[in-house]
Amino acid sequence: MKQTTTRQFEKICEILDRYERKPAKLIPILQAVQAEYRYLPKEALAYVATALGLSPSSVFGVATFYAHFALTPKGKYVVHVCDGTACHVKNSESLLAAIRKKLALKEGKNTTDDLLFTVETVSCLGACGLAPVMVVNEVVHGMMTPAKCDEVLDKILESEATQ
């Protein structure tokens, strides 16, 4: 069972009101809910289904269909390593390996236990001129090397430690 903070609950209500509880707005509603939780807890999905008058199975279907939606908690920082053709030939795999090693992610795990980082690959970010590319949340880092990846992560860890 996942804790929903009062602020998150207020936010869900506000999102539902903003989209006038229209079933046709399910996807933008789910996007907004995910922005709050960083994933879609099933309790929140059930609440959205009730509010929109949709069957929970179809809301679950939509939430699991799109790769953008996550049903398990994601880290505060989502690291996307591009593995499109251009990045791949520029050795993006070495970036991924370095990041995973730095964050001590075991096989089959993409999120750190402290919920600080989630590491995923994407198939082309459309920034092939900057290959290989890594994106942390909304910030794009181009022409990366394993060492530069380490630097970026170190900075984040530092700023988190001082908070």
Partner: peptide
């Protein structure tokens, strides 16, 4: 219709 689902707020 929905079982074992609670939205824990506080």
């Amino acid at each position: 219709r929905l079982h074992e689902l609670n939205l824990e707020i506080i």
